[in-house]
Write a protein that binds this DNA or RNA. Structure first.
Lengths: 336, 336
DNA sequence: GTGCACTTCTTAATCGTTTTCGTATTATCA
DNA sequence: TGATAATACGAAAACGATTAAGAAGTGCAC
């Protein structure tokens, strides 16, 4: 590794001068700057991030907390897409991304916050995690700039997919297709679920629909088995729904299986709608009608926000940024 | 941040003593060690990774190069699963994971190798990248311990999914189900494709099957449109295949769509098989018969290997580790 | 009592930067 | 001409750790 020392020798100046020249301080002569920079480039110089971090307390590195109870974080299409977008946006701005270690089994492990301090992350993005975890709270309440995705704390920035509008739009579409008996198998307890569920109730009320209690059921996210089972119960009702909403696209396929196994067709006999808009759902028959969340913007905004919190702490608002999704019209909801 | 200095003051010893106590050097008295450790824990001490890295030239951080031409790295189920497993295995051993910046558009950007030196990665894992990229070659040829996944260089360790055996097993299964006219839509040029294709030819020869040239077609990985188009051509043949192999599960659905649009059924009229074993393929009808690659082992072995290259450079062999997959029997291949 | 070996701890240099403060040189002006 | 200001650079400390080398203190043999 070529260091500033090497450059200073080559140029016959001090390391201080080299440092200042490369960082464009104004007390270095134009010609000297030029020469130093040229030599630096030619010698293939790049700074040592550890030394720089030690001195400046800045690492240009973001920590990403990305874990899931059922260990499906990275393998979860929605979150993977968000992360991918987050990564690109951060890299464009010169920040790298490191995972916050979530291994719980190591002896002498650090808490999330400790790990962040250890690595000196300039900021943190929290995705798809258990937001009631005390360690997450500790992190959120620390002085490290933090952005959460799809969860709202009162003292951090949050990037939220607009689940309220999303659910409303989806319901309106389904209503417009003629459906009046709409069932909703919602996800398990979480703020996202709450939002969607609240929006569901509000919207059906607005639309003047009658939704019997048996139409509201629950299955975990991405749980095809659970969705299958709940769908069966819905199909057993004397007054069947004409359309069923699922927690997410993945689970929706569990429901489709249940429907088809009874010899019913999707969407001719029963319509279904998902949530998320995972890629493959556009390539499999029936193409899922679903609320496609804007993962690109979610990831990008998260990166932008955390970086602005880092670089302009004063001027950056603690706010909630909402990203709208859109109804993707497949062919899983029939016109009736 | 509490530093060793703080602990040394609190304990009335020198920082050197603190450092050695915490690192369990043997020239520190047992009682002193105990006291120092207790105080350290109580004060909430954790080392500063930057300072440590600066001094030791070790970061306990792995770089992961994870990019794709079509920018589908993280959103690609197979690679996402590999990365997830890699991450877990690395974290269990105390290593963190940072993405090697692959943003090509930044002014003054670093090459992959430069970025690795800048961050001081102890080792690197290369996944799903363009292996002909000169920057990748530069990285591979450097002195940084490197492990590649699914690609073989002659001077690095490689973790390979056993595509040869995989293809053979899959073909044998299909053969055993009675199929004699088997078509293969293979992926585009890559070492993985070569291996699978070679294994395909070898196996059909062993089985004494006649495979007309029109049965061998090409479509990009994960390209449902391409797979759709090539499937149509196969269906147009006077002598249709009874079973079609696809580059991967995702593409397979493109083929299924083509088949169904002709009013044919899968698998009753035409059988299909995928490759990869992505999660959702087990939940959608027809459940794909596919070669399920062992992403858990691939990621895990990669982490173990690169860490052993780092920690025991002398004793670690430059080798090729092969991870076998298994035929996942769905119901997309009919018995005939 | 002296010498020697152990054990246990300290001193001080070092890693590659950044940054404050000081200094030498030149320019400006009364 | 001499004082002052502006410009361009350097010396040195500091960030938080590691580590080689050295220095006390203790115990033991003779």
């Amino acid at each position: 590794m070529v260091s500033m020392k090497d450059i200073s020798v080559a140029c016959g100046v001090s390391v201080a001068t080299v440092s200042k020249a490369l960082n464009d301080h104004e007390d270095i002569g134009a010609e000297t700057k030029r020469r130093i920079r040229e030599v630096a480039k030619q010698m293939g110089y790049f700074p040592n991030s550890a030394a720089k971090a030690l001195k400046t307390n800045r690492t240009q590195n973001l920590g990403v907390l990305f874990e899931d109870d059922d260990h499906s974080g990275l393998t979860h299409d929605y979150f993977a897409c968000v992360l991918d977008s987050l990564k690109s946006a951060a890299e464009e701005r010169g920040y790298d991304i490191t995972f916050i270690n979530s291994c719980r089994t190591r002896p002498n492990r650090m808490s999330y916050l400790e790990h962040c301090r250890y690595r000196g992350f300039d900021g943190v993005v929290i995705v798809c995690v258990n937001f009631r975890d005390p360690e997450v709270l500790e992190l959120v309440n620390s002085d490290i700039p933090t952005v959460t995705i799809d969860h709202l704390f009162n003292n951090t920035c949050a990037i939220m997919s607009d689940n309220v509008k999303g659910m409303r739009d989806l319901l309106h579409y389904i209503y417009d297709m003629g459906h009046r008996r709409i069932a909703y198998i919602h996800g398990v307890e979480s703020s996202v679920t709450q939002r969607r569920l609240a929006s569901f109730y509000k919207t059906v009320a607005e639309l003047g629909l009658d939704v019997p209690d048996e139409y509201i059921r629950q299955a975990a996210y991405r749980d095809t088995k659970g969705a299958y089972a709940e769908t069966e119960k819905l199909l057993d009702l004397k007054k069947r729904p004409t359309c069923i909403l699922y927690p997410d696209d993945f689970a929706c396929y569990g429901g489709i299986n249940a429907i088809r196994e009874r010899g019913l067709r999707v969407p001719e006999d029963i319509s279904v709608a998902g949530f998320d808009g995972i890629r493959i759902a556009r390539h499999i028959e029936p193409k899922l009608t679903t609320l496609r969340q804007d993962t690109y913007q979610l990831g990008r905004k998260a990166a932008e926000k955390v970086i602005s919190l880092i670089e302009q702490p004063k001027t950056t608002l603690i706010e909630q940024i909402v990203v709208e999704g859109e109804v993707y019209v497949g062919n899983s909801v029939a016109k009736i």
